[in-house]
C-alpha cells in the first residue's frame, strides 16, 4: 500500500486538479494581469477561446504524459496550444515555455512526496517524456510560423497574378 501511494503515476492522477490548475495559471502569467484574470476565469469556450483551448490542451497533455503517452494525441493537444502561442506576442522560447513549467509544477507540487526518493526513476522518465514533447512542440511551432509565411506568400502571389491580368487588359 505504501508503495502505491508513492507511485508517480498515481500521485499525478490523485493531484491532477491542483497541479493542472497551478500549471494553467502559470502559463497565463505570460499575459498582462487583467487578461490573465479574464482568460483564467471565463467558462464559455466562445467568449474565451484562448483560455479554453489552453486549458483543454494542457489537460490533454497532462493526461497523456502522466498516463498514456500516445504520440498522436500529444501532437494534437500540443498543436491546439502552439497554434495559438505561435501568433501571440511571444518570442519562440516563450511560446514553447509552457511545457518547461510542467516540470516546475510537478517538482514543487509533489516536493514532499518526491523527497522520499522512491520514485526518482519514474520522475526522470516523466521528465524525459516532457522533454520529448518540448522537441515536438518546437516542430509544431515552426510549422505554424511557416504556414503564416506561406499564406503571406500566397496572398502576394495572388495579387501579382491579378495585377498581371489587369495590365494585360490595360495594354
Amino acid at each position: 500500500m505504501e508503495q502505491a501511494a508513492l507511485d508517480l503515476k498515481s500521485l499525478l492522477t490523485d493531484n491532477k486538479d491542483t497541479l493542472l490548475t497551478k500549471w494553467f495559471h502559470l502559463v497565463l502569467e505570460t499575459y498582462p494581469k487583467e487578461t490573465a484574470r479574464h482568460f483564467g476565469n471565463q467558462k464559455s469556450q466562445f467568449a474565451n477561446p484562448i483560455g479554453h483551448n489552453i486549458f483543454e490542451g494542457l489537460d490533454e497533455i497532462y493526461d497523456e504524459l502522466s498516463q498514456y503517452a500516445n504520440e498522436d494525441r500529444i501532437f494534437k493537444a500540443l498543436d491546439r496550444i502552439l497554434r495559438i502561442t505561435a501568433v501571440q506576442d511571444l518570442s519562440p522560447s516563450k511560446a514553447v515555455s509552457f511545457l518547461f513549467l510542467l516540470k516546475r509544477v510537478v517538482r514543487e507540487g509533489l516536493a514532499e512526496e518526491l523527497r522520499e526518493g522512491k520514485c526518482l526513476q519514474e520522475l526522470l522518465d516523466f521528465e524525459d517524456k516532457v522533454d520529448q514533447s518540448i522537441l515536438l512542440a518546437f516542430n509544431i511551432y515552426l510549422e505554424c510560423r511557416e504556414t503564416i509565411y506561406k499564406m503571406r506568400l500566397h496572398e502576394v502571389k495572388t495579387r501579382c497574378d491579378i495585377l498581371e491580368r489587369i495590365n494585360q487588359y490595360n495594354n
Binding site: Q45, F46, P49, I50, H52, N53, I84, V87, Q88, I148, M151, R152, E155, V156, R159
Partner: peptide
Amino acid sequence: ADENMEMRMRGGLPRANAVKY
C-alpha cells in the same frame, strides 16, 4: 493586407474557434 497576417490570425481566432466547433 498580407503584412499583418499574424495579427489577422489573432483577430480571427474567435470566429475560427466557432467554425472549428
